[in-house]
Simulated scan of single mutants.
Amino acid sequence: MTQKYISDKEKRLSSCDESTLITDFETGEIFCSNCGHVLSERAEYSGPEWSSFSHDKINDTGTGSRTSLAKHDQGLSTIINTADKDVSGRPLSTTMKKTLKQLRILDRQSQIRTSGDRNFIQAFGKLHGLKDKLALSNIIMEKAAYIYRKAVEKKLVQGRTISAMIAASLYAACRDTKTPRTLKDIAQASNIRRKEIAVCYRLIFQELELKMPVIDSIQCIARISSRLEITEKTKRHAVKVLKQAQEHKETAGKDPMGLAAAALYLSCAKNGEYKTQRQIASAANVTEVTVRNRVKSFKLDQNLKL
């Protein structure tokens, strides 16, 4: 995580006048260090461009993209420039233009030699589309690309759709980095059935022997409350309820988003904020039945101080 001072534009979005923002580049969230309000779920890289080094000085002009696992060639292949000009800026002759056009075609064809290359081009194209829809960071993209490459190496993609496998790899990357993106979020963004992604995820989990950390439902509170503009006092009470539930093993085997939604609903009722179960369920991307059942289980537990 890194800290930065709040700007005039961001100050208008935050409820605090004097504060600093904390940027978590792993989850892609920007939040206030004082009240915990999430200003954005998508953090942009604000550092210098990828630079070249010459004469012991940094050249800040762009020199191409970094190597990345989320590219079919990992960003290592060369590209013939499309500008038909020589080093002096003068236009090339007609014969030379035709020659360069043929060389570009051959260069492009040489980069896609096998079916695996075509597979990666299609898969990583879909992955970048999901990144924009779900506002994910580059770290999660690299992790998802790594998992997908391992799945291709193990021949797990054969007989299954590329879209479902890349969506399952992305969900596995979100689970591994503790990024609050549910299976339903990814299913809606990818326009694929949730059940199909779940089957592919279980296959990847078992065959690659992944060790996934348990998602903490407390991390989901900030995301839900930011969508509903819930006060900090209510959020803190919801966190307190979830911590008590975790101590008494009430959260074991239950959906983290559903638990966070139920805790926020109870906290809103206690602090006089009018939020219906439908509103909270919609913000958490779960059903009203899930919220109702979690609320009922919390109320039945006499150890919880609601």
Rank of each mutant, 00 (worst) to 15 (best):
N119A: 12
R108Y: 09
L13A: 08
T67P: 00
A167M: 05
V286N: 08
S217R: 03
S7Q: 09
I58D: 04
T114A: 12
K254I: 06
R193K: 04
L183W: 00
E18K: 13
Y171N: 06
Q122N: 10
D56F: 09
I105Y: 08
A168G: 07
D216H: 05
S169D: 00
F205V: 08
R108V: 07
I204W: 08
S169K: 02
S19C: 15
E273R: 05
T234S: 11
V152A: 06
N285V: 04
I80S: 13
L127R: 10
K57T: 12
L228I: 10
K233I: 11
A189N: 01
R193W: 01
Q111D: 13
I121C: 10
A261D: 11
L183M: 02
D73R: 14
N34A: 04
V286D: 04
Q188M: 13
I112C: 13
M96T: 15
V152P: 00
I80P: 12
E142H: 00
L130P: 15
T182D: 04
I80N: 12
F205E: 10
D132K: 07
K133G: 03
K98I: 09
G28N: 08
R149C: 07
I280F: 15
K57S: 08
K211C: 10
A263G: 07
Q279Y: 11
C32F: 01
L136K: 02
P180V: 10
P256C: 03
T95S: 04
L306Y: 06
I30R: 15
S163M: 01
A189Q: 00
D24M: 09
K11V: 15
L242T: 02
S217L: 03
A281N: 10
K305T: 09
E29M: 12
L13Q: 13
L300N: 06
S54Q: 14
R118I: 09
S40P: 07
K299Y: 00
T82C: 01
R12S: 09
A187E: 00
E153R: 14
L13D: 05
S33H: 14
Q74H: 14
L183E: 02
L210N: 04
D107N: 15
Q206H: 05
R104S: 07
A269M: 04
I162S: 02
S110T: 11
S65M: 02
A238N: 01
E44Q: 06
C35K: 09
V87F: 14
K240M: 02
D86H: 14
T287A: 06
A222L: 05
T94N: 01
D185W: 03
L69P: 00
L300P: 01
G125E: 11
T63N: 08
K296E: 02
R193C: 02
D24A: 05
C220W: 11
S51D: 05
R202Y: 08
K9P: 03
K154A: 14
K150N: 08
S65G: 00
E229L: 13
K275C: 09
S115P: 07
Q277D: 12
I139S: 01
I112M: 14
D8F: 11
C174Y: 13
A269Y: 01
Q122F: 06
L127N: 09
I121S: 10
A245C: 12
S267M: 00
T99C: 07
A43F: 03
